[in-house]
């Protein structure tokens, strides 16, 4: 990294300025040769131990693939990964969505976003989003739908939507006023809210348990949750990119 130019009036004291120039952004001090050799040996030992552990794993690896395949019919989808993520192990996915919301709250609590209006796009970025954004939204919808029987799903589709947001932000486009405060927050928690609500309703059914979808309605429920999750993931990832409260 090049040493940044300190502008006059940037608020730095000359003394700390000198210390910063000599202390940071230099390569770290080289270790003495003996320490380097010892470090290399220790790392090699660690690598050997890890390699031995991997090689000593049972073949074929024990797993729940057979159990998943056996009850795939009850999951409402025909792709085993989606069945595990949204049905058999719904808790994991729900908590992943919560982690994303928490990450957004953490980012928002640190400071304000720079806003996208300050980005001055070049000719490519001015034109490209108009062509790419609709296509990416279409592909996101396709990935969501195809997740029921082939690789795809809410996280892939959501990150594509997040990419649309990042692209639009980089090209200097901003959200319309109606989309900013409440709607942005509602969209960010929509995935967690819908997932929790439907999971609770499933628990209240006779003989039901939390996040235990009745096989007849499983497909509809999973698609509803994935739709909400996709929107939330897209909004959260794009909002994380702007780096602060809107």
């Amino acid at each position: 990294m090049t040493e940044p130019q300190h502008r006059p009036g940037s608020g730095r004291q000359p003394a700390s300025d000198g210390a910063a120039a000599s202390g940071t952004s230099r390569a770290p001090e080289a270790l003495p040769p003996l320490a380097r050799v010892l470090l290399a040996l220790a790392l090699l030992g660690l690598f050997g131990g890890l390699a031995a552990a991997v090689l000593s794993l049972a073949q074929p690896a024990p797993g729940l693939a057979a159990a998943v395949a056996e009850r795939l019919d009850e999951s409402g989808v025909s792709h085993p990964v989606t069945a595990v993520l949204l049905n058999f192990r719904g808790y994991d996915t729900l908590l992943e969505l919560v982690v994303l919301v928490l990450a957004l709250m953490g980012t928002w609590s640190v400071g304000r976003a720079r806003g996208c209006a300050g980005n001055a796009p070049g000719p490519l970025l001015r034109q490209l989003p108009g062509l790419l954004a609709p296509l990416m939204v279409l592909v996101a919808g396709y990935l969501l739908w195809v997740g029921a029987h082939a690789p795809g799903g809410a996280f892939q589709a959501g990150s594509l939507l997040g990419g649309v947001g990042i692209l639009l932000c980089l090209s200097g486009r901003t959200l319309p006023p109606w989309a900013q405060r409440p709607s942005l927050r509602v969209l960010a928690v929509l995935g967690v809210a819908v997932f929790t609500l439907l999971g609770t309703v499933a628990a209240l059914l006779p003989g039901g348990a939390p996040l235990d979808w009745p096989p007849a309605q499983a497909k509809t429920l999973i698609l509803t949750i994935e739709l909400a999750a996709m929107l939330s993931i897209g909004v959260i990832l794009a909002a994380l990119f702007t780096g602060g409260r809107p």
Binding site: Q156, S159, G162, G163
Partner: peptide, 16 residues
């Protein structure tokens, strides 16, 4: 599935 997620989230969004 992991490849799609890695490409979209690991490379794309994390890189951005």
């Amino acid at each position: 599935d992991v490849a799609l997620a890695e490409m979209a989230i690991g490379a794309g969004v994390t890189g951005a």
